[in-house]
Design a protein around this nucleic acid. Sequence first.
RNA 1: GGGCCGGUAGCUCAAUGGUAGAGCACUGCCCUUUUAAGGCAGGGGUUCUGGGUUCGAGUCCCAGCCGGCUCACCA
Length: 518
Amino acid sequence: MASYAETGGQLVHGDEPEDLVLQRQKKLSAIADLGFELYPHKYEPTHSIPQVIADYSTRTAEALESEKPGVRLAGRVMTMRPHGKAGFAHVAGGGKRLQIYIRQDAVGERDFALYKLLDIGDLIGVEGYLFRTRTGELTVHASRLTFLAKGLLPLPEKWHGLADVEIRHRQRYLDLMVNEEARQVFESRSRLVRALREYLEGEGYMEVETPMMQPLAGGAMARPFVTHHNALDIDLYLRIAPELYLKRLIVGGFDRVYEINRNFRNEGISTQHNPEFTMLEFYQAYASYTDLIALTERLLRHVAQAVLGKLEFEFAGHAISFEQFNRLTMKQAIVEYWPSNASSRPTLDDLAAPRSAFQWVEEYNKASQAPLEIPADSAPGLALQELFEAVAEEHLIQPAFILDYPLEVSPLSKQKPDDPNFVERFELYIGGMEVANAFSELNDPREQRDRFEYQQLLREKGDLSAHAIDEDYIRALSYGMPPTAGEGIGIDRLTMLLTNSRSIRDVILFPLLRPEKT
RNA sequence: GGGCCGGUAGCUCAAUGGUAGAGCACUGCCCUUUUAAGGCAGGGGUUCUGGGUUCGAGUCCCAGCCGGCUCACCA
């Protein structure tokens, strides 16, 4: 850590406001001249600011006046209102603000001189007793100030806060300091993750950690990031999913496992996509996908209760409720949400024949501004899925399980006994977003090899997101995997829903941005 | 990557092609219950960058950089 002297007073570089910094550096020297330690090593508060507010906000002025409860607390100076030989300030900590009142005759000349040298943004400790001002605000009547650290750079404006989206993301610490809503979003996210763990642990699930660096990026269909291990001289991929490792654990006899961790996908960035994102994946032996539908409903209700205290919330102008979860097959969803301006409209029977999807893609394209381009040699199942995403996805605002996915787009899922062109799989849509993906896991090693080989074919035709063949995974299945159901839930998107955030960047503390030029 | 929109003081924002402004923040003075405290007096700008048009460009044109939204890929 470079000292002030070592850097020659040059604490910031680039186009920072040098004169404002210079002023504050001079004040820092003046504070040292008063005999204060500039960067003390610790401070021992008796209360956090939220604690003070929780414990004393109901006490009357009279009760406080007779008791004069003593407190010592620490935080960041957010506002200052000097009044000659006295003054007020608000100090922020733990997401709350508390007013302090400093009188020269109460703190003494040295501490009052310190008060005069404070800037908005400085960190201080305050000791004193609680009282209510004439206007009734709970306030610390200071008897002693302690200097804890200087804010050399000025904070954003007190009234409008920080609005510039780029700075809010690049300098999240500023966003958190001055935008109360930003702080609340990440507190909600933390509660959400805690609630997921609570629920799964209660259901007998065990949390595990599987590799983030994998010799083969499996478990999903996406392009991976590549890195290199020098000692072994091998390329490794950042995982696109933990799926194949978690199922190896099911083979090993951990019957209920889950992992909450990052996945990395080398795809585009959007309001719903960040290259690294957080996924809950869980696997349950001796269960099928219908068990997971029921579990998902219970899990999400538990989470909503934990985060919001209720099952209804607003997202993007829609009132969404977790009271009821709809169920539709993919084909039913296409029929249901078929564009009303289209000249003809499919029935379920019209979609029965596998290749009929192509015909309805054409019908869809006649009515659509954004026609689907599906190569003629694509699998019919792919065409059906594309059609579903184009027609139905944006309309799935209330929670809806979409059931029965085509075989060709589901290389790891078990076929439906009565319809081998489809698999036992569902995705959960809420607020027009895909939030979860689950299926009965394919556990027949021979069938799995066939599926991988079909994916290999797609890969050779240039589909970089087609699934690679994982020989050890097939070997694991060959030792026998129990019938198993597994599911992934996107934590970022779930957080978006429960915090009414329109962009995934609002729920990720440090979203990926192009690096700043220096 | 394509389309649309944006970038002006530390922050939030103004400014017909004609002297770059306001509020907050900052500096100095006054003020011992204020709270977007108040009063008086001040300082602060490579208008994102680089070209061009023009007597004159924050403003118009071109290129670039960064960001937002959106489409495509994906979850």
